[in-house]
Design a protein around this nucleic acid. Sequence first.
DNA 1: TTTAAATTATGACAAAAATCATATTTAGGA
DNA 2: TCCTAAATATGATTTTTGTCATAATTTAAA
Lengths: 143, 143
Amino acid sequence: MFSNSTKYAIKAVLYLAVHSSEQHKIVINDIAEPINVPKAYLAKLLQELSRQSIISSTKGLKGGFYLSNKDRERNIKDIIDVIDGEDRLNSCLLSLKDCDSKNPCSLHHLAYSQKQIILDNFKSKSLNDLAMHLKSGKSVLPL
Amino acid sequence: MFSNSTKYAIKAVLYLAVHSSEQHKIVINDIAEPINVPKAYLAKLLQELSRQSIISSTKGLKGGFYLSNKDRERNIKDIIDVIDGEDRLNSCLLSLKDCDSKNPCSLHHLAYSQKQIILDNFKSKSLNDLAMHLKSGKSVLPL
DNA sequence: TTTAAATTATGACAAAAATCATATTTAGGA
DNA sequence: TCCTAAATATGATTTTTGTCATAATTTAAA
Ligand code: FES
Ligand code: FES
C-alpha cells in the first residue's frame, strides 16, 4: 500500500508526535533507533519533511527534530503526499488516467468507495489525535 | 497500491477473460498491444501466471495464451498473490509483523475494516464475473 | 519429416527505490 | 570568539523492479 519510505516517515512523525515538543527536540539517532529504521535514510526523509514544513527542526547544539503545535494539526495524508506523492492514493488501481465513476476500470466498483473512506479517515485525524490514541495505549507504534 | 507488474498482469488476464477461449488462443503480441504493456515484459509475467496455473497456454503453431473454464473461476486476489506475493495485501500498513486488532498500529482503525471489504470483493468476483461486467460496458479496460 | 510460429528459459541492461557515507552549514555554550 | 553537536546537502552504492533481447523448446500444418 505504501512505500517503505512513507512507512518510515509515518512512524518517525508519530514518534515525534508522542515524544517531542518545542522544548524537547530529538536527535536523529534517538528517533531512528526506537522505531528501527536505518538512520541515514531516515535523516534524508526527515529533511524532506522539514523542508515541506510537515515537521520542525533546528540545527546545531541542542537542536533536533520536533513537532510544533501547528505541525500537530497535520494528518497522515499530508505525510504520504510529501513522500510518495499525491498520486499514490488518488490514482486508479489499474492506472487509468483518472479514477472516475463515469468511466470506471474493472476494479473500480470493488474498491473505490472503501478507498475513499480510508482517505477520509487519513485526513480527519490529526497527528495530535493519533498521538493521544497511542499514549492511551489503544494503539502501538511497531518496532 | 499495486506494483506495475500486478497491474499489467491484471489487465492482461482480464483481456484474456474477455477475448480468449480454448478455441481462440491469443499470441503475446496481440495481448500486449491493445492493453499497452511492454511486450517482452508481459511475456515474462504471463509465463509466470501460466506456471502458477492462473492462465493457460500452448506453445507452437496455433498456440497462445487463453483462459480455460477452470481459469475463469479465479479471482483478482489470485493474480495479485502470484505476482506481488500475499503480503502485499495482507500486511499491516506500518509493517507490524502481523496486522491484528489485538495489537493494532496507529493506522489500523483508520483502514482495517475497509481493507477487509476490498479484499473480500477481490475474492468474491470471478474473472468471469468481471469479464461479463466489461462486456456489458459497465466498466472499461484502461489503455 | 521439415518448417514456421508460438511459448519458455535465461540473462543482460536500465531505472527507480532504498541505503550508506561524508562534507558543509548552523546554532548554542564555554 | 571558538568549539562542538546537530541538521542539511550531496552524492555514491546497493537492491529491487521493470525492460529488452535471444536462444531453446514445442506444436501444428504442409
Ligand atoms: S477507475 Fe480504476 S479504480 Fe477507479
Ligand atoms: S496493525 Fe497495522 S494495519 Fe493492522
